[in-house]
Amino acid sequence: MASEKTVYKKPKSLTDVNFTYCWGCGHSTVHKLIAEIVDELNIRETLIGVAPVGCAVFAYDFWNFDVTEAAHGRAPVVATAIKRVHPDKTVFCYQGDGDMVSIGLAEIMHTANRGENLTVIFINNTNYGMTGGQLAPTSLMGQVTTTSPRGREAALHGYPIKMAELLTQFEGVKYIERVKVTDAASVIKTKKALKKAFLNQINGVGFSFVEVLSSCPANWRMDPVTANAHIDKNIAAYYPLGLIKDVK
């Protein structure tokens, strides 16, 4: 009988609940990467997460560590308070683009400006997923959504906000990287970036921010393969990938 060797298993930091995200959605991938990192850094028992309002509102169903909900857009200030109460714990928030860049812009900007020692994970899929694919501040020019049937127009909607670049000006922000999860290589890069954002907090470096370009095939009306190609070709062209700020 051939001996068996475990080469892959579910992270301890995931519950047994199956992901309920749509086919091709980037959330499941990023959720799993976070769980793997939490296991690898051995911080499951000292970690507190803050979930957003939006598609990832149920993130706490899938993660087996402490998680609180936050009102729409308020995750960074809820996380701020948790970190101030428990400075010895690792605290992160996980937000989508409607949550962070629209209703929660004040919260993320001031939290960044205060230089809170937090890990912030930003999932940018250029629309409001949960509510049915409405226009977000991050939607691309010309993007057709359920509230921009003629496509995004500058005169009506302005231009897409580049959140990662916007945050670079704050002295208190120490690390910003933009990544994607469209293929194996980019998933590995994303994991590296997320891990660094957690390690920065543990090492007291300060506010660390990872923006993940993530696909939303259901609302984009695309199959998953085409959706990933859309990120590679169009979205990443507007939102450049790579390291944006890294203060040692």
Binding site: V77, V78, T80, A81, E107, H110
Partner: peptide
């Protein structure tokens, strides 16, 4: 203790939410 001058009342009350969730008297 912790004193934070929040940047709006929305932020104050949601900070209190976070502190309370973390077990503090807030």
């Amino acid at each position: 203790g912790t004193f934070i001058q929040a940047e709006s009342e929305l932020i104050s009350v949601n900070m209190v939410f976070g502190a309370a969730a973390a077990g503090a008297r807030a």
